[in-house]
């Protein structure tokens, strides 16, 4: 790229591009390992687990952006939408691998799984809730819905995070280390929000009290 072109790209845009590309590294790594026949003895399992891991990392990580900002670290805040959409992206890959590769689109078997296997029921519910958030991620949708409604709708990400952690916790056989770690981070993120909400409430009441 010529020097002038780099100059034309602001630092801000470069950082955005770097973050955007960094979020694609897990996918690139999976594609690379697939082509190199390096996905282990059960490649389908590796693909499902890995895309699921990244889905939950983006969901739980995304829920940490607001607490981090309130603690004084503002930088990640402008990537909220990107992180959220990447969560949806990896969850879609996760679900597609399960539906198409693992189950071979065997509908009775898939429906049976959704109805009978609690971890799949919970995971599918999390996905269904994630769809409207992805669909309303554009600025135009924020305007159309109105900021208030949009914010209300996007609070769905809290139950989605909880469902995602439960989904993971229910599926492991014995070693619950990672589900517990994600659960702890999520609990911190949600707990922080609750704390902030409670901290702000008395102030609102006070200002309300001095009104004539």
């Amino acid at each position: 790229m010529p020097v002038s072109a780099i100059g034309a790209l602001s630092r801000r845009r470069l950082v955005w591009l770097a973050v955007f590309l960094a979020c694609l590294v897990p996918l690139a790594s999976l594609v690379w390992r697939f082509l190199a026949d390096d996905l282990g003895s059960d490649p389908v399992e590796t693909l499902i687990r890995s895309t699921g891991d990244w889905g939950i990392r983006f969901i739980v990580g995304g829920l940490m952006i607001t607490p981090l900002r309130q603690m004084g670290w503002n930088a990640p805040a402008r990537f909220r939408r990107m992180i959220g959409l990447y969560a949806f992206f990896y969850v879609c890959l996760h679900l597609t691998t399960y539906l198409v590769v693992d189950q071979g689109l065997d509908l009775p078997s898939i429906v049976g799984d959704i109805l009978k296997r609690p971890y799949i029921t919970v995971g599918m519910l999390a996905f269904v809730l994630l769809v409207p958030l992805a669909a309303t991620s554009t600025a135009a949708m924020v305007r159309r819905l109105g900021a208030r409604t949009w914010m209300m709708l996007h609070r769905l990400v809290y139950p989605i995070g909880v469902l995602a952690v439960i989904h993971y916790y229910l599926l492991v056989k014995a070693d619950v280390t990672w589900p517990v770690i994600y659960g702890a981070i999520l609990a911190f993120g949600l707990g922080w929000r609750l704390k902030e909400k409670l901290r702000r409430r008395p102030r609102t009441l006070r200002t309300g009290a001095v009104r004539p």
């Binding site: 399992e45 078997s109 049976g112 296997r117």
Partner: peptide, 12 residues
Amino acid sequence: PRWSQARERRIG
């Protein structure tokens, strides 16, 4: 209780 045993994936 948590997964179906009706089918299996043969490694490979």
